[in-house]
């Protein structure tokens, strides 16, 4: 249930984001989720991709600074209060959330979440019968 996420350090320069996706596209790597955290000078691009290790090596070759970190991903109903119920499960057991990103379409919301204790978060969500997405489902395209 642990999902490998790529983090790429980017300077705030026009064209850099495009370059990352261009490189990945040319290597036939699919991006299934992404988000950019930015400051005035630099940003971190986070992505869930097919073949994370291969993607990391390709980007490193192109002289990007890349790390792999672990996130979890789950589905909640696309209704008011649904995400709040899920997050309460985590906060009730003192699991901190570093960041999350998500998207809703139709009846479902998809969330990727980084926590200080990924294993414990997975356990708690499973115990409350939340719908987790497996790595294989996300990597494949």
């Amino acid at each position: 249930m642990i999902i490998k996420q790529l983090s790429v350090f980017l300077e705030n320069k026009s064209g850099r984001l495009h370059e990352v996706f261009d490189v990945l596209g040319a290597s036939n790597i699919n991006v299934s989720a992404c988000s950019v955290a930015d400051t005035s000078e630099f940003g971190i691009l986070r992505m869930i991709v097919s073949e994370p290790e291969k993607a990391r090596d390709i980007l490193k070759e192109k002289r990007f600074s890349v790390n792999i970190s672990e996130v979890i991903s789950f589905v909640t109903p696309n209704t008011p209060g649904a995400l709040a119920r899920t997050l309460k499960v985590l906060s009730d057991t003192n699991i901190s959330i570093e960041y999350l990103y998500g998207f809703s379409v139709g009846e479902k919301s998809f969330i990727a979440l980084r926590s200080d204790n990924v294993e414990k978060a997975i356990m708690e969500l499973q115990r409350h019968e939340m719908e987790l997405i497996s790595a294989n489902d996300l990597y494949k395209f």
Binding site: S7, A37, T39, R46, S65, N67, Y99
Partner: peptide, 15 residues
Amino acid sequence: EVEDRFYQDTISDLQ
């Protein structure tokens, strides 16, 4: 220069 061995993946690491 920022090399990948110097941070994990959060803005706060970099700050």
